[in-house]
Each structure stands twice: as structure tokens, then as C-alpha cells.
């Protein structure tokens, strides 16, 4: 019993670390793919890590106040907590005790944390950015929640460990994507929108609102957002793999699936401009929601 508790504690500590390291490589892949499309060389292997180390090495001269500091901690903390609920090969953490609903809730925390932190900066660009980010969240969370509901209904559980086990027991034919293809497409839409990449990149928008939430961030605060990005990429892709691609049988297949899933929105992102806010909401509430509802209807039959 004591051993099992110790093992769980160890996993809960290790899982965010693994997420951070894999997330760094995901950031690298994203930048490399962008560079390939844009006919550039792209950054070297450890550039994402160098960026974070450099930013954390900077001395903080000013703070916008306690809420600002807490906001960044919430933004990173939300994802760190989420990692303990995302099973990976060999480590389930507390996934069996949590569930999809808790995970979905934790994935909303970073946006709320950013809203708190950036709101205290009182920079209009930041405030507009956050208002756009929350609007975008309102848009993509609806298909996301419907997809989660559909998957949970299909597998009869909100427990990710058992969802993955069911898929793996039946092979590729039993994967979520084979049994619920419409939901899988809707889920990919929601995943892309949740990453905030083009054409859904309405809240960074450098030419419009001077990078929005990031406008008042520098040094450790910006470093915090960089760390958040690594977790964000990891969380979104691992969740998708867990719901639709049978999770990870081993680390090799797991990582291949995660990186392949992430490559889809990344490749699309660098070929499109961003939508206007209302176009984004119209699109996301139309197609992904319709697809998700259709997927749920199929699942419930």
C-alpha cells in the first residue's frame, strides 16, 4: 500500500517533467516545420530550452502586482496538474482517480489564470487579447465538451486509463478514430482551435494588438508563458491520442502518434491568416459543433 502511494507520488512528479521535455521537442518540431514551409533553416535542437533558460535568467525589475504573478503560476500550474491526469506508457499517475471532466476543467485554468494576470497589467492590448482568448475559449470549448461527452458515452467511462485500455484491447479497429470518425474530426478542429494557431490565432495577433496577453510580459513571466506553451502542445496532443488513437502501447508509438497529431494543425497554421473574432466563433460553432453533435448522435445509436 505504502509502496503504491510512493509510486503514485513519484509518477505525479515525473509526469510533468516528461511532459515538459516532450513539449520542448514539440515546440522544436513546430518551429522546424514552420521554417521548412517558410524556406528557412529553423532553430537548432536545444533552442526552445535555451529560450526558456535565457528568459528565466533575466532579473525581474518590475511586477504588476500579486495577481499578475499568481496568474502566470495558474497558467503553468493548470497544465502541470493536468499532466498527472494524462496517462503515458508505464505511468498512470492519478488518471484512474481523476477523469476526463477534471482534465477538461484543468485545461481551462491556464486561460483564466492569464486573464487574471494580464488584466492587472492594465494594458489595453493585453486586455483585448485576453477578451479575445476567452471568446475563443468559449467557441472551442463547446465542441470540445461535446466530443468528450461522446467519447465517454461510447466507452461508458470518463476514466482515461480504462478508455485507453479498451482501445488497446481491440487493436486499431477499436481505436476511437475507427469507431467514432466524425467525433475524431470534430476533436481535431477543437484541438487546433485550442492551440490558438492560425487561422484561430486571434488573441496573439501581433499586428493588431501587439501580441495581446504577452505585451507586458518579459523575463521570467514570458519564460512562464513559454513553459506553458510546451505543456499546452503536449496536453492537447496526448489527450487526442488517448481519446482517438489508443493512447501509447509503448513510448515509441506514443510519441509518433503525439507528434503526428500535432503536425496536422501546425502544418495548416502556417498556410493561413487569422480569422476575425466573429468569423472564428461562427466557424467553430457551426462545423465542429455540428460534426460533434452528429458524432454523438452516431455514438448514441
Amino acid at each position: 500500500m505504502a509502496n503504491s502511494i510512493l509510486l503514485t507520488i513519484l509518477e505525479v512528479i515525473l509526469m510533468p517533467l516528461v511532459a515538459f521535455i516532450v513539449g520542448l521537442f514539440m515546440v522544436l518540431m513546430m518551429r522546424k516545420l514552420a521554417a521548412k514551409l517558410q524556406r528557412r533553416v529553423g532553430p537548432p535542437l536545444f533552442q526552445p530550452l535555451y529560450d526558456i533558460v535565457k528568459l528565466y535568467g533575466k532579473q525581474t525589475q518590475i511586477s504588476h502586482g500579486l495577481i499578475h504573478d499568481i496568474g502566470i503560476i495558474m497558467a503553468v500550474g493548470g497544465y502541470v496538474a493536468a499532466e498527472a491526469l494524462l496517462p503515458v506508457p508505464g505511468m498512470d499517475g492519478i488518471a484512474a482517480k481523476g477523469g476526463l471532466v477534471t482534465l477538461a476543467y484543468l485545461m481551462m485554468v491556464p486561460s483564466l489564470g492569464l486573464a487574471l494576470g494580464v488584466g492587472q497589467c492594465a494594458n489595453p492590448n493585453g486586455s483585448i487579447g485576453i477578451s479575445r482568448a476567452l471568446t475563443a475559449m468559449l467557441a472551442y470549448d463547446i465542441p470540445f465538451i461535446i466530443v468528450i461527452f461522446g467519447v465517454a458515452y461510447h466507452f461508458g467511462s470518463t476514466n482515461l486509463v480504462s478508455i485507453i485500455a479498451t482501445q488497446q484491447a481491440e487493436g486499431i479497429a477499436g481505436w476511437g478514430i475507427s469507431e467514432m470518425p466524425i467525433l475524431a474530426i470534430a476533436g481535431l478542429f477543437a484541438l487546433h482551435a485550442s492551440l490558438g494557431k492560425q487561422p484561430f490565432e486571434i488573441y496573439i495577433a501581433p499586428a493588431e494588438i501587439a501580441t495581446g496577453p504577452m505585451v507586458e510580459m518579459g523575463g521570467k513571466f514570458l519564460g512562464g508563458l513559454f513553459v506553458m506553451q510546451t505543456f499546452q502542445l503536449y496536453t492537447a496532443s496526448v489527450l487526442y491520442v488517448s481519446l482517438f488513437l489508443g493512447g501509447g502501447e509503448n513510448w515509441v508509438t506514443f510519441l509518433i502518434k503525439c507528434f503526428a497529431v500535432l503536425a496536422i494543425p501546425v502544418l495548416i497554421a502556417y498556410l493561413f491568416p487569422r480569422y476575425r473574432t466573429e468569423d472564428l466563433i461562427r466557424l467553430v460553432w457551426k462545423w465542429p459543433v455540428m460534426l460533434a453533435l452528429l458524432g454523438v448522435a452516431f455514438v448514441m445509436n
Binding site: 514552420a34 514551409l37 517558410q38 524556406r39 528557412r40 492560425q198 487561422p199 490565432e201 495577433a205 499586428a207 493588431e208 502556417y270 498556410l271 493561413f272 491568416p273 487569422r274
Partner: peptide, 16 residues
């Protein structure tokens, strides 16, 4: 112009 709408690939192509 493309970059103002969030599309950076034509910008890199154009510069190259």
C-alpha cells in the same frame, strides 16, 4: 500585408 493578417509564410518567401 500578409503578415498583418497573421500569415507569415508569404513574408518569408517575399524576403527570400
Amino acid at each position: 500585408h500578409a503578415a498583418t493578417t497573421g500569415m507569415y509564410t508569404p513574408m518569408y518567401w517575399g524576403v527570400t
